[in-house]
Amino acid sequence: MPRIRFTENLQRHVACPPGEVAGGTVREVLEAYFAEGNRSTARGYVLDDQGALRKHMAIFVNGAPVMDRRLLADAVPEDGTVDVIQALSGG
């Protein structure tokens, strides 16, 4: 199953421990993670009102930045690692 990790800076506001969740796209992995344990608050820290990646957040799959920030349709390999980080553009 893909692994998912979150920036340490997010932990100050809401708990997002590393996890392993099923999913073949970034969207599927993220939604599976947020649905697990009712992490709806954490979802709002990463995704905006329309479900797109927040402007100053970034996601990498196996070290490569995702291309689709709105639908989050980039593929995630079965043994992939999804990193959710802050973009320095946000200050």
Partner: peptide, 25 residues
């Protein structure tokens, strides 16, 4: 929070303790 968006918090004891509440969506 910039990166993490806009949040709302509530305190019922004059600001000693705060609880995050829902944000308008």
């Amino acid at each position: 929070h910039g990166h993490f968006g806009v949040k709302l918090h509530r305190s019922v004891d004059g600001g000693v303790a705060w609880q995050e509440i829902a944000t308008p969506v």
